[in-house]
């Protein structure tokens, strides 16, 4: 069954790659599915998509979505419609660190736009692009619920507040240094966040 879908005039198609959670992660995913009443396993879709994105390549390819559909015993289209609705699911390959700068009013009026512009110049990419070394993707997102600490951004699961250009320089430098030595995470993170 080769399903694909079309969004923004772009056709996404399966590559036919075999994707699969490790046994350890699969065990945890099954525990999440078991939270919901009989016949309501689709409720696990949002959490499982988060886990799939993290574990299976950093974005949701059609193969990954088809795999999730099969796990939850639902139609692939049910997964596509959800994956395309929520902004935290990435349909395209992203960098190792996804930098999300808040662009909504309270941040914007305290310098949020400057911060995002500065990052574009610093990383030499436009918003929604990824650096050539595959390290950073820059996005502008809506209110992150931290307006009193404006301007703010989030990089993967970490928050950065009261941003200045110096703080950005420091952060990017730290991440570049960390990128190589970072250990692959064990499956414990699933329990922590889901």
């Amino acid at each position: 069954m080769a399903l694909g879908y079309n969004i923004d005039h772009k056709l996404y198609q399966p590559e036919g790659k075999e994707v699969r959670f490790t046994d350890e992660v699969l065990e945890k995913v099954k525990k999440i599915i078991a939270r919901y009443p009989e016949g309501r396993q689709k409720s696990a879709l949002l959490p499982v998509l988060h886990i799939a994105q993290e574990e299976l390549g950093g974005h949701l390819s059609v193969d990954v979505m088809n795999y999730v559909a099969q796990l939850l015993n639902i139609q692939p289209i049910e997964v596509y419609e959800v994956a395309t609705f929520y902004t935290q699911y990435y349909l395209e390959k992203t960098g190792k660190y996804v930098i999300e700068v808040c662009r909504t009013g309270p941040c914007a009026m305290c310098g949020g736009e400057d911060i995002a512009d500065y990052l574009e110049r610093k990383l030499n990419i436009k918003t929604d692009e990824t650096t050539a070394d595959g390290l950073f993707t820059l996005r502008r997102v809506e209110c992150l619920g931290a307006c009193g600490y404006a301007p703010v951004m989030q990089i993967n699961t970490e928050f950065y507040e009261f941003l200045t250009q110096e703080k950005i320089d420091q952060t990017i430098e730290n991440l570049r240094a960390r990128a190589n030595e970072e250990k692959p995470k064990d499956s414990k993170w699933v329990e922590k966040f889901f």
């Binding site: 939270r35 409720s43 949002l46 959490p47 609705f85 929520y86 699911y89 997102v141 966040f193 889901f194």
Partner: peptide
């Protein structure tokens, strides 16, 4: 009683 945390995915 069981309490579960469910994560959204970015949608106001």
């Amino acid at each position: 009683l069981d309490i579960y945390v469910q994560s959204g995915a970015g949608a106001y």
